[in-house]
Write a protein that binds this DNA or RNA. Structure first.
Lengths: 314, 314
DNA sequence: TAAAACATGACAACTACTGTCATGATTAAA
DNA sequence: TTTAATCATGACAGTAGTTGTCATGTTTTA
């Protein structure tokens, strides 16, 4: 077997253990100890951060965590990785910040001058904007780890009604619009609730949960399950059509007529009305609600509230 | 020099040219042609997609685009790259989709079984949610390229008032909430406008522009420049505080009092009032606007509109 | 003090690599 | 059609690199 291949095998063998002796490697690959010493010297020369402890109970250790075999990337693939990192630029708290930094440093330093410029340029012409939150999410990594380990949790949570304590089973975490959310099964209330990770004040790990829960992807799919069906029927002007099509929850429902105006006529869940009403409030004349009366009443009630807060005689 | 090192040098030399002959390589590195042939066979065995054209004017070509030298990633770095790719999962159109796929395939296949499971698990517990838009953005890559090349553009754009033609200089593109936006300098109106890339119907490249324009990052910084200052003074209930702190444009302005209620008293740009009014409408009783009267009037007017659209007698 | 480990050098046996020469095949230009 | 420029492959001897064995040191801990 060629030396290069053998070195690689040893690299992988060695980076998977936290400590090993030359004898172990010699036995594993059927080579002499002298050769193992020579190989380790070679790996060390190649930059692998390996060090030896002298004496009885001594041995070698590798400082980095487990290594992958060398990978040949094309320049374009490297650019795509930078591009993906770029997309996380506007998040304040991320679970893998340090690893991302060292990975991009390794990539960047092996790019040729020309490609470096390309990457720099790309990064000044493309961005993934998120509101750069001042809000810290210190417990993000901790919560993610517990979720992956399938454990239950006791949390202190800052909710509408003040600080409360919950006993939950996390389903996963997701980022949206610069904030981190955690859907979780509330073991007391026996239903799934959505928490904001930055509002979690403290966590206490509890036992592992063997039960099968819905996973994050399924949860996304099921979020819009209709429990209390209600008919939504709205007539839209051209501008109304345009704006509704930018609204993720409604874009699929808009029907466009030949003259550019349109309408929505669909069955939605009653619970969604509260989220929908601000949109129709904003649209004003551009959206004429035909049904349901509940939605009209919400809008009318809110309008009355506003008028009573700010009476005419100022 | 060791064979491994020499092979690497040749790999880099070779992957940077689109075509080369054995003689060229032999001259470059002062080795015999026979050895070059042997080396090329080795590289080919290692999986480099290299092929030869026979005969006069023949030579070798490498099929992939330029390669980087082999990189040793740690397992954690690999995971961070998957994590970054994951963040782009919910975008429909991306400029580097195919490269991202091949890069993640290379990474994934060199992970050990255990690490593969870790990655799979991570991906089912963490997500970066964006409304999964039905809207296509076919011109995204084209627009990005033109922006990088610093060129002017003629575009057809679907705006409020129908299809219009614009002559612009793009500043960059950015993604927000699942949609792609392009701030650009309108060369006719001589000011910066914001376009939605999915609403661009066609583009025609024009001449390169030598002038220095603001770049994307500067533009983000300058967006909130105050042109018409106006005092915003609002009293907030506890719930009002909570909600305003989740609003990126307001979170920095909220002052919290000891009892948990709070207020905003700050100078903002008059143009922002239109974007702010839906929030205060939604907050209703939780936000008592003291100033400006303009904002109160907007709310009152909108409330009146709503009430006139849906009169009491139903 | 002895045992277990790393560290290093010398040397002969073995293996791999290299250059030279030879021969063929394929292709395009003269 | 011939010729020159290419890749492709084999043989072989000389050179260079790698390996195992043996020897000797050093460091650490039981």
């Amino acid at each position: 077997m060629s030396k290069a291949k053998r070195l690689l095998d040893i690299l992988l063998f060695v980076s998977a253990k936290k400590k090993f002796t030359a004898q172990e490697v010699a036995d594993e690959f059927n080579i002499s100890i002298r050769t193992v010493h020579r190989y380790i010297l070679d790996l060390s020369d190649m930059g692998l951060p390996i060090y030896a402890e002298q004496g009885r109970n001594g041995g070698y250790s590798v400082l980095t965590s487990r290594l992958l075999p060398p990978i040949l990337f094309t320049e374009d693939e490297a650019v795509s990785i930078f591009f993906a990192f770029q997309s996380l630029h506007y998040y304040r708290d991320l679970p893998f910040n340090t690893e991302m930094k060292s990975a991009s440093h390794k990539l960047y330093s092996s790019l040729q001058e020309e490609a470096k410029q390309k990457v720099d340029k790309l990064q000044s012409y493309i961005a993934f904007w998120n509101p750069k939150r001042a809000i810290e999410t210190p417990l993000l990594k901790a919560v993610l780890e517990v979720a992956i380990e399938n454990k239950n949790l006791h949390i202190q949570y800052e909710s509408k009604s003040g600080t409360t304590t919950k006993y939950i089973h996390p389903i996963g975490v997701y980022a949206h619009d610069g904030l981190w959310y955690m859907p979780a099964f509330d073991l007391t209330k026996q239903k799934i609730l959505l928490f904001r990770v930055d509002r979690i004040l403290s966590i206490v790990e509890s036992e592992e949960n063997k039960e099968e829960f819905i996973n994050l992807e399924e949860w996304f799919g099921n979020t819009y399950e209709i429990k209390q069906p209600i008919r939504l029927h709205v007539l839209l002007s051209r501008e109304g059509v345009r704006q509704c099509r930018s609204e993720p929850s409604l874009e699929d429902l808009v029907v466009i007529k030949e003259d550019g105006t349109g309408y929505i006529d669909s069955i939605i869940d009653k619970g969604e009305l509260n989220f929908t009403s601000p949109l129709f409030y904003r649209l004003g004349m551009h959206a004429q609600i035909v049904e349901p009366n509940e939605l009209i009443n919400i809008l009318r009630q809110q309008a009355k509230d506003i008028l009573s807060m700010y009476p005419e005689n100022e």
